[in-house]
Design a protein around this nucleic acid. Structure first.
Lengths: 120, 120
DNA sequence: GGGTTGTGCAACCAATGGGTTGTGATTCCC
DNA sequence: GGGAATCACAACCCATTGGTTGCACAACCC
């Protein structure tokens, strides 16, 4: 289910770059070769190659060897994993937020000791 | 709605570190001071301070000045923004995947030219 | 006022990241 | 076989990051 810690790190840092996100957006339209991907960017093909290697290592894309070109395709499941993490924490935080709201409401109502805050 | 490009970069790179994710998990239990946050980690308080500054810059947490301590609290909306991005792309990719599936099915059925792939 | 506590700032350092150029390996085209 | 195209690898550069130590500052305790 939920990805391992270091995989999360891989995916998040892969997503933490505008160029790589743009590449992913581009790949959402369909598979593409390295040169096709490099074309819209003001940088060398080698730089794009590096970015692709990062995305591949995060398993956000996979590549098939077709003759002399190596088209890239998205690996959607990977994004699911991250979405899982996000969603989990979103819920936790939301709950926390609700509890805080209730807490504040309770405060406004009557007593106000027994915070029940952190306590590690 | 959807966050700006560079904000995405900020949030994703903030999340791309196990220590910072652990801090967030810890904060999901309730607000905490810098020293409380630093305690479970094998690093100095200053290092944690730096991590907090990164999280704050990504607006994943916010800090209130209470006397001499500066407790940290989560900022849930931020995670919503990222969740939005992820979810958007998850859908796009899923669609893409379906179309590919249909495509392959169609291939198995009858003809098989007219790929309708990329075309930039 | 003086010591302790909680925190931030600055300087430094090693490692990583994002980019470049240069080059080499395949595969296609003729 | 020879040239052009597609791509990856290696070496390098510079800026950023993640960590350290050392200090300064502000607020509490006495």
């Amino acid at each position: 289910m939920t990805v391992a810690e270091d995989e999360l790190t891989l995916v998040f840092s892969a997503l933490a770059d505008p160029t790589r996100r743009a590449i992913l957006e581009r790949l959402a339209l369909g598979e593409a070769t390295v040169n096709q991907l490099a074309e819209p960017f003001a940088m060398t093909q080698q730089a794009i190659s590096k970015h692709l290697k990062v995305l591949e290592r995060a398993r956000l894309i996979s590549r098939t060897r077709t003759a002399q070109s190596r088209p890239c395709v998205l690996d959607a499941e990977r994004l699911d994993a991250v979405a899982g993490w996000i969603e989990r924490h979103r819920r936790i935080w939301a709950d926390r937020h609700d509890r805080l709201g209730q807490h504040l409401a309770a405060l406004g109502a009557t007593r106000h000791d027994d915070e029940g805050e952190v306590a590690p």
